[in-house]
């Protein structure tokens, strides 16, 4: 465990909590892509099946349980409790275009052709693109609430910090996981355009709105 990994995890946790609190406090999930949140719930579910097979540390187990519980709570709030506020008309990204290719790729390129390992690989690939429905929704409506942009910032920051963590681990532990690194790079690149808007607009007190 190094400082980049830890702050990455905490940044991820912050993103998840910010989104949950935003929905809970405003009693609304307007502007939030339910599809992205469903994909994240699927990501955590398929990745953390190793909770049943291997124990790594108390930290590891508790964080996994928190991530899974929060992602299911978010999906519940969007599709059940605050369904009336869900902006389904703008959440039109075709998720099968992500899930099907990612599913195929995880069968073809993995560390080990075993069910748990294929599901882990699937979750790594899927996580790298799971934010696309949310970014698509923002590009469609042309704007995002400031709190939603904070959520996206911490979510992107988490993967960026993981990249530094992997460089650290490569040099100091000889650890290198090509699948995680390639997917992590792809994931971070997807946030670059957003990071630019976040720094130039949101941090200067302006609302994130895209030119028409």
């Amino acid at each position: 465990m190094n400082i980049f990994r830890l702050t990455g995890d905490l940044s991820h946790l912050a993103a998840i909590i910010i989104l949950l609190l935003k929905i809970w406090k405003t009693r609304s999930c307007a502007g939030i892509s339910g599809k992205s949140q469903l994909l994240f719930a699927l990501v955590f579910t398929t990745r953390y099946l190793d909770l049943f097979t291997s124990f790594i540390s108390l930290y590891n187990t508790s964080m996994k349980l928190i991530y899974v519980a929060c992602s299911y709570a978010t999906v519940y709030l969007i599709y059940m409790k605050f369904k009336a506020t869900y902006d389904g008309n703008h959440d039109t990204f075709r998720v099968e275009f992500l899930v099907v290719p990612v599913g195929g790729l995880s069968f073809l390129v993995n560390h080990d052709f075993s069910p748990l390992e294929i599901l882990w690989t699937f979750s790594i690939y899927l996580e790298s693109v799971a934010i696309l429905p949310q970014l698509f929704m923002i590009s469609k409506t042309g704007e995002a609430e400031t709190i939603t942009t904070h959520y996206l910032f911490f979510l992107g920051l988490y993967r960026a910090l993981y990249l530094i963590n992997w460089i650290w681990r490569y040099y100091f532990e000889g650890f290198f996981d090509l699948i995680a690194v390639v997917a992590g790079v792809v994931q971070t690149i997807l946030y670059c355009d957003f990071f630019y808007l976040y720094v130039t607009k949101v941090l200067k007190g302006k609302k994130l709105s895209l030119p028409a």
């Binding site: 190793d50 590891n60 964080m63 996981d177």
Partner: peptide, 10 residues
């Protein structure tokens, strides 16, 4: 150098 069955990252 990693055991694929033990992914220690989140």
């Amino acid at each position: 150098s990693m055991d694929p069955a033990k992914h220690d990252e989140l």
